[in-house]
Structures are given as structure tokens and as C-alpha cells.
Simulated scan of single mutants.
Amino acid sequence: MKIKLERKEKRNKVKKVPTIKVGTHKKTTTALWILLLTSIAFGVYKNFTAIDQHTTHEKEVIEQRVIDTNKIESFSRNFITAFYSWEHNQKALDQRTEKLKDYLTEELQVLNADMVRTDIPTNSTVESIQFWDIESIDKNNFDVLFTVRQMITEQDKKQTIDSDYSLTIHLDDKENMVIVKNPTANSIPVKSNYKPTASDSDGTVNDKTTEEIDSFLKTFFKLYPKANEKELSYYVKDSSLKATNKKYEFLEVSSSNYYRSKGKISVEVSVKYLDSLTKTTQTFQYKLFLEKVENWIITSKI
């Protein structure tokens, strides 16, 4: 008897690869979101803080200059009046010395002790003070440029003198002031040698148009001094020239120059009037833009 043996093929078992389940890691994700939001919030805060600080600084600088200039001018005026006024007698000089203590440092009081003595033959009175400049050296110190006019009397002789000086004032944090540099000879601005370029019509406006404008300007400037706003509206656009309501009598258009630019006519004109109150002849100068729609009209001042 034959026994039939059957072999069963062995199947290789596939081993399962171990896996790790990745969860949401809620704690880690939350921490990262908090870090991101904190960074953004800090950046926004720094940005707005920087802008606010800058704006505040600029505002403080502007206000400081305006307020200090007025106070410095008043303080300087009082000091200058006391410093440049004297009489050659002991009582008056003692009073002057005492008054200057309110303005000068102790060092400057000693320095100026022998400026005016009883043996000098002059008296001085301050007639006027003119300020030319108050310049900030730094936060607390200011240079003051001024002219003082004095009436100097010596026996029966009187003369007026003008002198230019600069002094330095210290302003402390409580806005109290003291003179820290004596008035020192200086110079004030004088007449400039500048000469403006002489203007003349450049030929861009033809003869016919020139005649029309001449006629228009004479008509307008005759009525201009006494015209009201409604009357001016026929000649002037958008109230470019305001009513003056003056008692001026028109004499002439003494000079005029015309130029064409971008469809408009620019005019430089000098007009003479007789002032009926002062009886003087006054010459007024205007720079205007003119346009012609139906009639000529002044559109604006240059």
C-alpha cells in the first residue's frame, strides 16, 4: 500500500513593521502659536511706540522755541534798559548796580563793577531797543542780537547813538534766565547789493492783445480802490484781489510787462494813486494772471 505524502509549502510570514502613531501634539502646537502671536504683537508695539515717541519729540521742540523766544526777548529788554541807563551820581549808580543783580551772574557783576563811575561826565537814557535775532545755541543757551539807541547827555550837549551788540542768556529747566555773556559789539544786517533782473515784455504778446490789456488794466485800476466785492467779481475771478475801500485817486499805470505762458497772460504792472488823506503819491505793484473768455479777467495773483 502506497502512502502518498503531500508537502505543504511553508508560507513566509511577513513581519509587521512597527509604526508610531503621530498625534496632533496639541501642547507643542499651542506653544508654537503663542510664540508666533507674541512676536507679532511685540513688533507692532515697538513700531507704534517709536512713532509716538518721535512725534512727541518734534512737538516739544517746536513749542520750546516759540515760548522761549518771547520770554527771552522780554528778559533781554528789561536788562538792556537797566544796563545802558545811568546818571553820574552815587545814589543812581548804586540803584543801577542793585538792579543788574537780577540779570547778571556774580562773575559778570564783578566784571561790570567799574563800567560806570561817579567821575564820568555823561548820563544815558535808552530810547529804543530793536531785536534782530534770537538764536538757539543748544537746549539751554541763546544768543541775542540787538540794537540799542541811547540819548547821551554831557553837560548841555546831547547826542543820540545807535550801537549793535549780542549777549548770551542761559535758560534753566525751570525757565528761569540769567545773562552769562556780556553784551559784546556785533554787527546787524545791512542793505544787500542784490539787484533783481530787470523785467521787460518778451514779445510773446502781440500788439493788438497788448492794447486790449492796457485798456482793461486802466479801467480796472480806476475803480479798484472803491469797488465792493460784487463790482470786483466782473473783473476778478474767485476773489483773487480783495476789496480795499480806500480813498485813492487813480493817476496812471506807470509801467507794465506782459508774458504769455500756458494759455495765460502774466502781467507785472505798477499803478500810481494819489492818497487823498496823506496827499502823497503811492505806487503799488502787482503780479497777475489774465485770461480772456468773453472779456479779460484777472484769474489769480502770481
Rank of each mutant, 00 (worst) to 15 (best):
Q282K: 04
I62R: 07
F221N: 03
K139W: 12
V148W: 03
H170W: 01
K15I: 13
I188D: 01
K16W: 07
Y45N: 02
M1I: 09
F221K: 00
R7L: 14
S124T: 12
Q155S: 11
Y248A: 04
K21T: 13
S240W: 13
K222E: 07
Y234E: 06
R117L: 15
I213D: 08
T69M: 10
E9W: 06
K191Q: 03
P196I: 08
S256G: 09
Q159H: 15
Q53I: 15
Y234S: 07
I213C: 04
L232T: 09
E127T: 06
E252N: 08
T278F: 14
H88D: 12
L223A: 02
D156P: 09
S215D: 10
L251T: 06
T49F: 00
E58Y: 11
K301G: 13
G23S: 06
A185G: 05
V126M: 02
W296F: 07
D143E: 07
S255Y: 02
R11M: 13
T280F: 14
V116D: 10
A113P: 13
L111C: 00
K21D: 14
L241I: 10
K272E: 13
S270P: 08
Y103F: 11
S276V: 14
N206H: 05
I152A: 01
N206T: 04
D94M: 04
T38A: 13
Q282Y: 08
Y273F: 11
G43T: 02
V148N: 00
T56K: 00
A198Y: 13
N47Q: 10
Q130W: 05
D164K: 02
I169T: 01
T160L: 12
L108I: 04
I188F: 03
K21H: 15
Q90M: 08
I137Q: 00
Y224G: 02
K16Y: 10
S261R: 05
L37H: 09
